[in-house]
Design a binder for these strands. Structure first.
Length: 224
DNA sequence: GCATTAACCACAG
DNA sequence: CTGTGGTTAATGC
């Protein structure tokens, strides 16, 4: 049985549950640990739970006509896949752990009851969904109009700020996955990273990245 | 035309 | 998995 009460990681929504609702949730939640590379839930499979990323980082991805498309990188703590849990019975995308990760699964009917019966809870969930949608809009416009260096710069900054909140970090994706994230080929990613590195915008060896010239990176990102 | 951008292929560490 | 060079197609002066 879960000990949600002792869990330090409570999102705004869960914090607004009534005590009896909280207890119900605690009794109907299962925590699962995933290793790096493990599939958390799969596109095309039946969705019966809401997944909450308690610790670790996950990628949200979907099969495209030619290759995999990475839709989002999710840093914990955060729900993953609310749209796929409520938008349809079948998952429209997959989630995969990109570092060791732990996920709490909550029965979807229970979660739906909380939304019906607790306005504050529902409100917090809507806020999270809206924030995600706004970030999606940002990415859609960037991806359709920016050139690749602009996309790569934007992504490096975004991961630095939103995922790690640090100027140097262990980049969680391969270059090929980076390409799938920004909508380009792995070769282009490789060339642009080398170029950025040669121009002292970033420094990277293997997976370790360090942002050296944030100002210029921002310019490249904004100019597209 | 000529230059730029970026994808695809191939091959080597 | 990553880095590079060659080739090719599309687009923009």
């Amino acid at each position: 049985m879960q000990q949600c009460n002792n869990c330090i990681i409570k999102c705004a929504a869960v914090s607004s549950l009534h005590p009896e609702q909280f207890e119900v949730m605690e009794n109907n939640t299962v925590e699962v640990h995933f290793k790096k590379g493990d599939n958390i839930f799969r596109e095309g499979a039946l969705s019966l739970n809401v997944a909450f990323l308690k610790s670790g980082i996950a990628k949200i991805h979907k099969r495209g006509p030619v290759r995999e498309k990475i839709l989002r990188i999710v840093q914990s703590p955060s729900y993953i896949g609310l749209p796929t849990s409520f938008g349809d019975k079948i998952n429209h995308f997959s989630a995969t752990a990109i570092v060791d990760t732990s996920v709490c699964f909550i029965d979807i009917n229970l979660f739906r009851n909380f939304i019906y019966n607790n306005g504050k809870f529902a409100y917090e969930i809507i806020v999270e969904l809206c924030e995600n949608e706004l970030m999606d809009y940002q990415r859609y416009t960037s991806q359709s109009q920016k050139q690749i260096p602009g996309m790569v710069a934007e992504t490096l900054l975004c991961i630095s700020e939103k995922i790690f909140n640090a100027d140097s970090y262990n980049f969680p994706l391969t270059q090929s996955e980076f390409g799938d994230l920004v909508g380009t080929s792995r070769e282009s990613v490789s060339r642009i990273l080398s170029d950025f590195s040669a121009n002292k915008l970033i420094e990277f060896k293997g997976k370790k990245f360090k942002i050296l010239n944030k100002k210029l990176l921002k310019q490249i990102s904004e100019k597209g």
